[in-house]
Amino acid sequence: MNIVVIGATGMAGSAIVADAASRGHHVTAVSRGGQGTDTVHDHDHVTAVALDVAATDATDHLTRILADADADIDAVVLAVRPAPGSEHLMASMTAAVLDAAGRAGIRVVVVGGSAPLRSPDDPDRLVIDDTRYIPEAWRPIAGASLDQFRVCLEHPRARWTYLSPPAVFAPGEDTGGYRRGTTTLLTDEHGQSRVTPADLALAVVDEIEEPGDDPHITVVGR
């Protein structure tokens, strides 16, 4: 398969590039500087491309990237996380990617945030409003992910899947697997809601290889 990963040098993006390449997929690794990662250097079928998704002409540039690829693109993964203070850019960056992918008829997997999920013991409450999972310090990026999810819901053309990580997405001991859910936050047997980049990447590439019917999914470490 041919996969474009936007945000390829970030914590999520680099893990997704590595997992996809390890399965033999051809990956176009897009980042603002276009710099290579260890994965780019280690795999012949990973190509680094520069693109600032926050630029005003990002849709046009991405449209050209999708058209100029060596083979038809099967999926685009959006895995960007704005720096603190730039959270407001999340919605416009997502819209730019959905616009370009929609023009090309390419499916998008958006690696977003947990804010749009339902609280596990209160289905009427969003996770963004549950301080057990999103403390006050995390609300700016959580709010941005909620705006991002709404952009997906309102887009008129694009085919997308929104993947919400659990409450904590951070390096740690990989489990080599994950549990998959839909619109409600998942926790493990200890009540923790977390996943590592490598375990999340497994879920993203699995979703690309065998797309499900649910537009909004979530995972937690096994």
Rank of each mutant, 00 (worst) to 15 (best):
S119R: 12
L200W: 00
D130L: 14
P215L: 07
W138A: 14
D121F: 13
P166H: 12
E207W: 02
E209S: 03
L186D: 00
P166W: 02
T182E: 14
T183P: 03
L126H: 15
P211I: 00
D122G: 06
I217N: 01
D130R: 13
A170D: 13
A137D: 14
Q148F: 07
L163N: 01
V151F: 01
T161N: 06
P135Y: 08
Y162W: 10
Q192D: 15
A144H: 04
Y133H: 12
I141C: 08
A142E: 05
I208D: 02
D121T: 15
P211A: 02
R194P: 06
E189S: 12
T218S: 05
D147V: 08
D129P: 09
G191P: 09
I134F: 04
R125D: 12
A201C: 06
T218W: 01
T175M: 10
A198Q: 13
R150Q: 15
V127P: 02
V168K: 05
P120L: 11
A142N: 06
I128F: 11
E209C: 00
P165W: 04
E136G: 05
P123V: 12
S164N: 04
F169V: 07
L117N: 08
S119C: 15
T196E: 11
Y133P: 06
A142S: 14
E173H: 11
E210R: 13
I208Y: 02
P123N: 14
P165C: 08
D130I: 10
P120E: 10
W160N: 04
T131I: 15
E154R: 08
R139F: 02
Y178A: 08
F149E: 06
G212W: 01
T161Y: 11
